[in-house]
């Protein structure tokens, strides 16, 4: 994994996506069992469609979040840090879908010795339908600058530097 530096990031860049699927009921069951999640909409088709009026059993939102985290942590590399992220579960995902986590650089700012990159993120199915739109902030080192501290503390970020 090559190191990523703030200097090498350009606004408008698409970061490498992470693809999962096609998702099956077994994928959903594996996650639910691993996390001891007993919410019926993930494994009880009759309950999901009858009681909750859903189209099928649901891919867990709690699972989808980790795919978005994987996307950002992979991109930041071992020298960067996924600092903040937020996203909403706006759409449902069901078995049979192939899901792609995506990210696009929306802005960047130098903060003292470090750089902060703002991204739009989301999770689309094979038809391009978005289910999980959100945003993220990733801290990256600058070429010739110090390593991003670990554990991370936002107090290390200096005031914004105009470029």
């Amino acid at each position: 994994m090559s190191d990523l530096y703030f200097d090498d990031v350009t606004v408008g860049d698409d970061i490498p996506g992470v693809v999962k699927g096609p998702m099956s009921t077994a994928h959903i069951m594996r996650w639910s069992a691993a996390m001891e999640n007993w919410h019926r909409i993930h494994y009880d088709w009759k309950y999901a469609t009858g009681h909750d009026k859903l189209p099928d059993v649901m891919v867990n939102g709690s699972w989808k979040q980790h795919v978005l985290i994987q996307l950002l942590v992979d991109w930041a590399g071992e020298g960067g840090w996924l600092w903040r992220m937020g996203f909403q579960f706006r759409g449902m995902n069901v078995p049979g879908e192939t899901l792609t986590a995506w990210g696009r650089v929306r802005g960047k700012e130098r903060r003292g010795d470090y750089g902060v990159v703002n991204l739009a993120i989301g999770l689309k199915n094979e038809k391009g339908v978005e289910s999980t739109p959100g945003t993220a902030r990733v801290v990256l080192p600058c070429r010739g600058g110090p390593a991003v501290p670990y554990p991370f503390d936002a107090a290390c970020l200096g005031p914004r530097v105009s470029e």
């Binding site: 919410h39 009681h51 909750d52 009026k53 867990n60 939102g61 709690s62 979040q65 840090w81 996924l82 600092w83 903040r84 992220m85 937020g86 996203f87 909403q88 579960f89 959100g134 670990y150 554990p151 991370f152 503390d153 936002a154």
Partner: peptide
């Protein structure tokens, strides 16, 4: 209300 859905998350990571 008997139906429950996950609405979303906001995270800040330290370690």
């Amino acid at each position: 209300l008997t139906r429950l859905l996950n609405g979303g998350y906001e995270y800040e990571f330290f370690r």
